[in-house]
Design a protein around this nucleic acid. Sequence first.
DNA 1: AGCTCTTATTGAACATTGTTCAATTCATAT
DNA 2: ATATGAATTGAACAATGTTCAATAAGAGCT
Lengths: 203, 203
Amino acid sequence: MARRSDHSRRELTAMMVAAARAIIAEEGVEGLTARKLAAAVGYSPGSIYNLFQNLDGLIVEVNGETLDRLIADLSEISMQGDPEQDLATIVEHYLAFEAENPTLWSALFDYDLRQGSSWPDWYLAKIAEVFALAEAALEPIFGAAPNPEKRRAIQTLWAGLHGITSLARSGSLGSVADEDARSLARHLSRTYLAGLMQDRRNA
Amino acid sequence: MARRSDHSRRELTAMMVAAARAIIAEEGVEGLTARKLAAAVGYSPGSIYNLFQNLDGLIVEVNGETLDRLIADLSEISMQGDPEQDLATIVEHYLAFEAENPTLWSALFDYDLRQGSSWPDWYLAKIAEVFALAEAALEPIFGAAPNPEKRRAIQTLWAGLHGITSLARSGSLGSVADEDARSLARHLSRTYLAGLMQDRRNA
DNA sequence: AGCTCTTATTGAACATTGTTCAATTCATAT
DNA sequence: ATATGAATTGAACAATGTTCAATAAGAGCT
């Protein structure tokens, strides 16, 4: 039996999240099982449920960390003031991050919480932070202040990238390979931006 | 024991696919279990595996039917020769079909086959058929003949719509409700098309 | 030291899952 | 009738997430 003073509640929580992240990174979210996680931290399965309501609670924490990393990654971009170039940079970061963390990414954007639970507020705040960072690329067009159209443009583009990579991964786009998906993603961002600016000119 | 002459192999296969479709339509793809399906057709769980390699095989068949319905639905569109309007019509059909068949749609585009199996060729052919129908809207721009750019445009748009609706459904777009997603979808199609035509003008 | 009390930890248990396969039953051909 | 071969069964297996009574452990107190 693990001795109760081996780790504080906080330490054990952190250990479990770390172990869960390692398992998801290695085997995907479907590889995360209670018994495997328990073995990884040297506790029994039941102990997981002292700290988390269920396995979804763990996944939420892991995704939260992934969002932190994504935020850190996007924060390093220094915008040049050219929407075309800056948006392209964001797309490259998006694609690179996803390529380097495929299973964690999938847990983040493909995983559906079971009926009854939903993403907590701090989680949605992190997603909003991601979008806010991406919006910076469009400041030359829409200004620095919060702007519904700017917000909508980033949501649309982000979702579009997600659709391309996720359909390509599942094979539902027909014979679209990995590199094709990357090319489609770049094409979408370029073309969508062109349309945006066209809209602006006509308005 | 069900008597072997109650139903032919073909009949029983059809019954199982129909029952599987009903279950998925009602409870989603995660509600499809071997025992529930067996009870629905009045056979034992083991009988499923006489006709299908596993449950994924059934899901493939159900998705195939859904694709047939989608193809039939899109086939009824009579193109007006105006890409803007015709593309908008396709988007409306996309959104309407998804809204009317949410769980079947999810099985079609969100479900991941387990490691080891992949979509059969006839399945990918149906998806190609869907895309071919949508491509008709872009004939005024790219011509009637097969055209890689036309193909790419439809793949991009379709994937983009998928990304918007799927992220909105999972809640990963922040506070984007159903109706917002529909609005984003329309916006994407309009703006992307504008970008496409801009590209053409510059080329 | 001992005794009590609170709480962390366990691990067996439960219901449910997909899938397998020996045994059984059935229809048909001989 | 009898034999053959295939359809059907349902018990069995190995997993799964989750629960919870039992237990162990440490802290506080005398």
